[in-house]
């Protein structure tokens, strides 16, 4: 029976990339009126075909999370987000070489042969000053104007 382990990983220290994205959206792309803040998470979705998922999640986190600067939560077979922001998931639609390397590393170097698949994505957490319907529309606009290059990335609003 296969299970999906979702690791949501975020920085404990200031996230320079999120700060730059926020700065660009507000200073350069005119979202200052609606956008309040931008945060970012990394998402690993790891499919395993056996083993105790909680235990596996701990082992994967040890490998993939840099505890010096990152925190994480593990979710088994679900992917939930808190209220208060619009989560936008950005992932490659072309072959993701890094995800393939992570799978190979988990399987061959660390011996987790029950790992079937690894996917990785970025979750952009967009905090708006506006109400939900407008916020989602603005999130789509932000994704298309900045967060993705459609020739390699896709996005999905995760609500």
């Amino acid at each position: 029976m296969s299970q999906k382990i979702n690791l949501r990983v975020w920085l404990k220290i200031p996230d320079a990339e999120a700060a730059t994205v926020k700065n660009t959206l507000i200073r350069r792309l005119g979202f200052g009126k609606v956008l309040a803040d931008v945060k970012k998470e990394r998402l690993f979705s790891i499919e395993v075909d056996s083993g105790d998922p909680q235990e596996m999640a701990r082992a994967f986190a040890k490998e993939l999370v840099n505890e010096n600067k990152e925190s994480h939560i593990a979710l088994i077979d679900e992917l939930l987000f808190e209220e208060g922001y619009v989560p936008v998931k950005v992932a490659l639609h072309i072959e993701d070489g890094e995800a393939i390397s992570i799978r190979e590393r988990l399987r061959s170097r660390l011996g987790f042969e029950n790992v079937v698949d690894v996917k990785k994505a970025t979750i952009w957490k967009l905090y708006f000053k506006t109400l939900k319907p407008e916020a989602e529309a603005a999130a789509r606009e932000i994704a298309e104007k900045l967060l993705i290059n459609p020739h390699k990335d896709t996005y999905e609003i995760m609500t």
Partner: peptide
């Protein structure tokens, strides 16, 4: 430019 944040070149491409 901008440490390739987000993806290479994109942040600079939005500069005036």
């Amino acid at each position: 430019s901008y440490q390739d944040r987000l993806r290479a070149g994109v942040i600079a491409s939005k500069e005036p």
